[in-house]
Amino acid sequence: MFIEIFFVPQKVVGDTFGYEFLSNLAGKSLGKFNANIIIDFQECTFFDGNLCAVLGNILQSLKDRNNTIQIINLSGKVRGAMGRNGFLTNFVSNINVPVIYHNSIPYRKFKLEDESHAKDFFKDQLFGKQDMPHMSPLAQKEIIRNIFEVCLNAVTHGGCEYVYCCGQVYLRKVPAKALITFADLGNSIKANVNNYLRKNLTGNEAIMWALADGNTTKTQDIPGGLGLKLLQNLIYLNKGKLQFVSGDGFVEIKDGNPTFFKLDIDFPGTIVTLELLLNDPNFYYLGDEDKEWTNIF
């Protein structure tokens, strides 16, 4: 059996270096069938828990193509983090790490048909934990809505069956925050937008086009182009952060301002990471919606 070893770098976080490692792994694994894939963590001392969504998506797609996966040389800290969020049990047999979700949003893959289950899952994981800062019911609802907007975007535009998700909760940080990553290995935003516009935009240009209000690559009789704008509004009001990685594009948005990075290796799909502040109970503004509600059309 063909054997290929991938070495995980010392630190894998949501930066250019971390995303390039994941892009390289995803790209090289696309054509692998019936091979033995070894993921060697010998050098790795830190792996962002939320990025298990991306790693899991890549490894699961390898498994689906009859490859075997071996994860080796995990250090205590990385093993603990990847064990607690339930990631390792999917890829390592007989793993002896307690699965404790107190500081994590467990590794999961979702189908659109799982909607009701997914709603309860995110509610419990984001707002139902002990010691979680209070967040108003309206803020909670807005966050759940936007999580689904991200998932729907992946399934509708990425053309994939599952969206992978994992998160990390930082209750001791001031302010307390949660990082949640969604990953899919479907069509990249760059490919979709360039196909639609018949242009040759860079990854970052394509991401910015997709984020603009009203822009959509859908061509049917159903309008679109609102979901990602709503997500940006939410993150702006929450004072959180948003990252989009797709193709060679990597855009980070904070306080409504995008920062652009370029990846040297294309990511064959899309990664969205939300950084949400958890102790911001009153950010959602209702405006004057309780006034006039007739002739709305």
């Binding site: 709603k119 759940i144 689904f148 907007e149 159903i222 979901g227």
Partner: peptide, 11 residues
């Protein structure tokens, strides 16, 4: 209805 998205309302 507890949660509703723009994608649902669009359709």
């Amino acid at each position: 209805i507890e949660v509703i998205t723009s994608a649902f309302l669009n359709a």
